[in-house]
Design a protein around this nucleic acid. Structure first.
Lengths: 298, 298
DNA sequence: CTCAACATGTCAGAAAAACTCACATGACCA
DNA sequence: TGGTCATGTGAGTTTTTCTGACATGTTGAG
C-alpha cells in the first residue's frame, strides 16, 4: 500500500548516490564521514525497498547492476542540484552585506562618528546602515540587526542583546544666554528653565526628574523638536537646556561645545542590539562585543 | 570549516520543501505523516544552518521569506526529480515480467506441460521462461529466479528455497525389446542391461544404486546422451532403460509410455528455486508455494 | 601456495536524529 | 471575550543511523 510518489530514506539515497558516483562503498563512506558498514547497511535498505540488487558485489569492489544504473541516472542530477543550490545559498549569504537598522539620530550622532573604526575592526561585516525611525517595527526589508535605545518589555519577534544601561542628563551650551544662573547650582535650578525636549521621547525629562528626586510636575517645557538630532543641534546652538543620552553628547562634551553640569543618571532603558529571531549569525556576536566595548569604555 | 558542497539534513530539506509547496506547516506534517512539531523543528534546523529565517511566522500560517523563496526555487525541482525517478523505478519494476531461468530439460518435460495452469494460478507473475543449461552460473542477464535440481552445498550468492526432495528411478518403455527379462525381477536385473544415461549427470545411476543397496560397480553403461531430455526421449522410444526424476516422467507413466517397475528412491538432491540474494520479491513466495504444491501433490 | 592487503558484509550495542505529546502563544473571527 | 486555527517549545521516547569488531571473499606478491 506504499504510495508510489513517496520517497525512500533520503539518507539511503544519498549513500547510494555517493557509492554509485565513486564506485566504492569505502570511498562513499569517507565522503560522508561514516564507516563503510553504515553505507553498506543503507544500500541494503534501498535494495530491500526495490526488491532488487543495485550493485553486484565481487569481493573486490562493487559495480552497478542495470537497475542500479537506472537509479543513478535518475537521482544523480537531483543531488547535484541540491548540492549546488545549497552551497550557493550559503555563499550568497556569507557574501551579503550586514544591514544595521538604526534611528537616524543615533546614526548621525553616534554610529557615523565611529564608523571608520567599526569598519576597521570588523571588516568581514561589510556593514550597511539603514536609517529607519523605528527599526524594531515590522517593515518590508528587515535588517540583520537593529541598534536602539529601548526599555523592556522587549519587542516581540526580536532577540535582544543588552549592550549597556542608558544614562541621560541635561546638557547646555557654554554659549547659552542663561548659563550664569545655572552654574554652581543643583538640579533644582532647572525648574526655572524652559526645557528643550523631543516629541519622539516625551518621557525623557520626567524620567530624569524621577531619577534625581525632583517632582516631574516641577519642570516647565520650552520648545519641542521632532527628533533628538534636532534637539541636540539646538542645544549646541545655545538655545537652551536639553536632555540627552550620554554617549550621544560625549564628543560635544569633550570638545567643549556642551556642558553637563549635573552629570548623567541611569534610566530603565538600555542600549540594545536586536536581531530577528532565529538569526544567530556569528557576525552578530562580534558586533555585540564591539558595541558593548564602545559604550562602556569611555 | 564546513565544506560548502555538503548538504544539510535531507529530512530537514524535505520538510522545508513540503512546507514551502503546501504553504503550511500542518499540511506538510500531514503529507509526511508526522506531527507539526516535527516539521517545525526541522525547519528550525535549516534556519539555524543558514542563520536566516526561511519563513515569516504570523500566528496564522507561514509565508516564505526572500531567502526561503530562493531555497525553494533551488530545491523544489530536485525533489520532484527524486520523486519521479523513484516512483518510475518502482513502477517499471512491478510491471516487468518475472524471468525464470531453468534447464531446458526441466523446461520441456515439466514446466511447459504445467504452464497454462501456472499462468492461470499466478497471472500477476507475467512469467517469462529463460532456458539456460546452468541457470545458477553467473551470467549477463540474471533471472529473477532459477528452478533447478541440486544438492548442497548451495551455490553461493543465491538464496535457495527447497521445494521437495528429489526421487529418481529407472524407467523403461513397454516397447523395449528386452522388457521381458526385466519384469517381475528386482533391481539386480538391471546389472545385465546396458543402461542409458546422461553425461550431464553421470552420478544418477551410482546414486540410485547406492540408495537401493547395489554396488555401483555392478552397473554397465550403454549409450549416453548430452541432456536428460534426449535420454528420456530415447527411453520412450524403447531404446533401453533410463533413469529419471519422478516428476519428469509422471505424465509418461500415467499414459503408459513408460514403466517404472522398481519405483523411485530419494537422493540427496532437491528441487530448488534459487533467487539472487537480497531479492525477496513477494512474487517469489507465491511461486515457491505453487511449485511445492505441484511437486508434492501427485 | 600462502599470506598480506583490500573491499565488503554482518551484528550487537551505542549514539544521534527524529518524533510525539502536551502545553503555550499569538492571530483571527464571531 | 472566548473559540478555533496555526505554530512554537521542551521533556521524554522511539526510530534511525552509526560504530567497532569480526567474518568473508578477492587479488596480487613473494
Amino acid at each position: 500500500m506504499t504510495m508510489s510518489r513517496e520517497l525512500p530514506s533520503l539518507n539511503a539515497l544519498r549513500a547510494f548516490e555517493a557509492t554509485a558516483r565513486l564506485g566504492s562503498v569505502s570511498r562513499a563512506a569517507e565522503e560522508l564521514h561514516v564507516t563503510h558498514g553504515a553505507i553498506s547497511r543503507q544500500l541494503r535498505v534501498l535494495e530491500e525497498a526495490l526488491e532488487q540488487p543495485l550493485f553486484a558485489r565481487h569481493g573486490r569492489g562493487v559495480t552497478l547492476t542495470a537497475m542500479g544504473e537506472e537509479l543513478r541516472d535518475r537521482v544523480a542530477g537531483a543531488f547535484d542540484q541540491l548540492r549546488d543550490g545549497w552551497s550557493e545559498l550559503r555563499r550568497h549569504r556569507s557574501e551579503s552585506p550586514f544591514v544595521l537598522g538604526c534611528a537616524s539620530s543615533l546614526l548621525a550622532r553616534w554610529v557615523i562618528p565611529r564608523l571608520d573604526r567599526l569598519e576597521r575592526d570588523l571588516p568581514m561585516l561589510r556593514l550597511h546602515l539603514s536609517p529607519e525611525e523605528n527599526p524594531l517595527a515590522p517593515q518590508h526589508a528587515e535588517p540583520d540587526a537593529a541598534l536602539a535605545l529601548a526599555a523592556p518589555p522587549w519587542p516581540h519577534g526580536w532577540q535582544v542583546h543588552e549592550l549597556a544601561p542608558e544614562q541621560i542628563g541635561p546638557v547646555v551650551s557654554p554659549r547659552y544666554a542663561g548659563l550664569a544662573r545655572l552654574l554652581d547650582r543643583d538640579e533644582t535650578a532647572l525648574c526655572d528653565e524652559a526645557l528643550l525636549h523631543t516629541t519622539s521621547r516625551p518621557q525623557a525629562w520626567p524620567e530624569w526628574a524621577q531619577a534625581c528626586g525632583l517632582p516631574a510636575t516641577a519642570l516647565r517645557y520650552g520648545q519641542g523638536f521632532a527628533r533628538l538630532f534636532y534637539l541636540l543641534e539646538a542645544a549646541v546652538a545655545g538655545l537652551g537646556v536639553a536632555i540627552a543620552p550620554a554617549p550621544l553628547v560625549q564628543d560635544d562634551l569633550r570638545e567643549g561645545r556642551l556642558l553637563a553640569p549635573w552629570g548623567f543618571r541611569q534610566t530603565s532603558a538600555s542600549w540594545i542590539l536586536a536581531t530577528p529571531r532565529r538569526r544567530n549569525d556569528a557576525r552578530i556576536d562580534a558586533l555585540v562585543a564591539w558595541l558593548r566595548n564602545e559604550l562602556t569604555e569611555s
